[in-house]
């Protein structure tokens, strides 16, 4: 019975469960859903009742009523009151959806310490100012993620990954969403709402995943022929494992860079560097 109820509820509600903001959106949605169902049943009920009860019958005389000011003012005010109530509820719920909390005690303790590359008035940070900030770059047709921890002081050589984002559990992760070509939209349903990646703009969101797992999503704004295959996954792992992964990623990238440089040098040595212009 409980299972049936939860399945039925899942049928009527958005995905959630990965992050507090997604859960808060889900609970706000449920409040709107309850109000909507009441209005739906009342109005559709009145419509169906009128259609059945007042269908043409022998001897029935239509009442020549042209209006009723009190009734009309009443339902106008009634509709306004319902919507004002929904607005108030939304504003009450909003901070929990928008404002990231602090990382948990068993989260990644390095997070936030000097890892914010630049600040903006619109990016929300946790109360203690510490978050793991990942830059999400949308491009046709793949997501790229750039992590803090650059090898060089000018921010170059930062570790990155494609399509699969790896994050530590119990850690507040803030996302800085940008795009390099056309408009994309970052969306992992179970980790909260979607946000457009617009070339020339920064957009922000956050999530905090309590337990390890894999969360899937995909680009939500038409970005070209490969739009349907512009997938994204977020893999949440314990902080120690994350640090390990990040170190490995950094090592591999610098090794690959070094190998590429060596290969380039070798190639230049064979063909004669700088002679490309005068073959």
């Amino acid at each position: 019975m409980g299972h049936l109820l939860s399945t039925t509820l899942a049928f009527f509600t958005p995905l959630s469960g990965g992050s507090p903001n997604a859960n808060e959106i889900d609970s706000l949605y449920k409040i709107v859903l309850v109000v909507a169902l009441v209005v739906f049943v009342a109005v559709e009920g009145a419509l169906v009742y009128a259609l059945v009860r007042f269908r043409k019958r022998r001897g029935a005389v239509p009442a020549q009523i042209r209006g009723n000011t009190r009734l009309e003012v009443g339902w106008t005010v009634g509709a306004a009151v319902i919507l004002i109530a929904l607005a108030v509820i939304t504003f009450v719920k909003l901070p929990a959806i928008q404002n990231p909390p602090n990382s948990g005690p068993n989260g990644d303790q390095l997070a936030g310490s000097g890892r914010v590359l630049y600040a903006s008035s619109e990016r929300k940070l946790p109360p203690n100012g510490k978050a793991l900030n990942i830059t999400v770059i949308g491009r046709q047709f793949i997501w790229q993620y750039v992590y803090p921890g650059a090898n060089e002081p000018d921010g170059l050589g930062a570790p990155y990954s494609y399509e699969a984002m790896v994050v530590p559990t119990n850690t507040t992760v803030t996302l800085d969403i940008v795009a390099s070509d056309v408009v994309h939209s970052w969306w992992i349903p179970e980790l909260g709402g979607k946000f457009q990646a617009v070339p020339g703009y920064h957009n922000y969101t956050w999530f905090k995943i309590p337990k390890p797992g894999i969360y899937r999503g995909q680009c939500a704004v038409l970005c070209g022929r490969g739009h349907a295959r512009m997938l994204a996954t977020v893999r949440a792992v314990p902080p120690a494992q994350f640090d390990e992964w990040l170190a490995k990623q950094k090592r591999e990238i610098s090794e690959a860079n070094a190998a590429a440089q060596a290969a380039r040098a070798k190639l230049n040595g064979q063909t004669g560097a700088g002679q490309v212009e005068n073959p």
Partner: peptide
């Protein structure tokens, strides 16, 4: 009304 509630729209938009 669901879609006008912007935090809810963050989930529903473009779906």
């Amino acid at each position: 009304v669901f879609l006008a509630t912007f935090p809810v729209d963050w989930q529903l938009n473009e779906t």
